[in-house]
Write a protein that binds this DNA or RNA. Sequence first.
DNA 1: CGGTATCCTATCGGATACTG
DNA 2: CAGTATCCGATAGGATACCG
Lengths: 113, 113
Amino acid sequence: MELEKDLFGKCPYTTAQKVLSGKWSIMILYHLGIKTMRFGELQRQLPDLTQSTLTKQLRALEDYGLIERTIYPQVPPKVEYSLSDIGIKFQKVLAELAIWGNDYIKTLQKKEL
Amino acid sequence: MELEKDLFGKCPYTTAQKVLSGKWSIMILYHLGIKTMRFGELQRQLPDLTQSTLTKQLRALEDYGLIERTIYPQVPPKVEYSLSDIGIKFQKVLAELAIWGNDYIKTLQKKEL
DNA sequence: CGGTATCCTATCGGATACTG
DNA sequence: CAGTATCCGATAGGATACCG
């Protein structure tokens, strides 16, 4: 995933779509919205993706500017991931997404009855 | 894209992510939120995807239950796409997404200066 | 008009193994 | 601890051509 600089002029939806295209973007943004986390802690929250996949997804979100990576120069290494300003603003979308997602699941369940 | 029936028990975010994974889902949902449209009209709004791709994306959204397809038995054929109840509810997410998307574009532009 | 049916390719996510 | 390097398979999406 590589950041495209020519997002300007594009519509907000297309832009959002690109940023959210990563399979784990939403989940990562959700967890970092709860609190800043170290790599390992984040990985424990998301047991279904491997270390290398998590790294790639984090790099993508970092390139897009949604999250920030802070490296503490020490041994053993400590790296913290947190939301950027624009990442924090995304929490509003997540909130609506959560409401809708629960609603959607309920709808599916009714159909099954 | 095939609908998975075992979404139950999953978190709302994972569910939402699956539904939104289609490259054009958001754009389609946005346009159908404005008004019910025929296939051709929708295609004119989205010049960047081919007919076959549009068909696939529409089928996926239909399978997920977000949109409804109404076929009017006449010649030439007339098919209308509209939002389902849960699709209408998704407009709230889209609204937040639009706000955020515009914000994000502004942020990027500032960085470029 | 509103599709199918094929085929093809790029990319993305995952598995695995190794490292400062 | 937090990565990187490499490889690999699945699949989503696009191009093209044809159809009721």
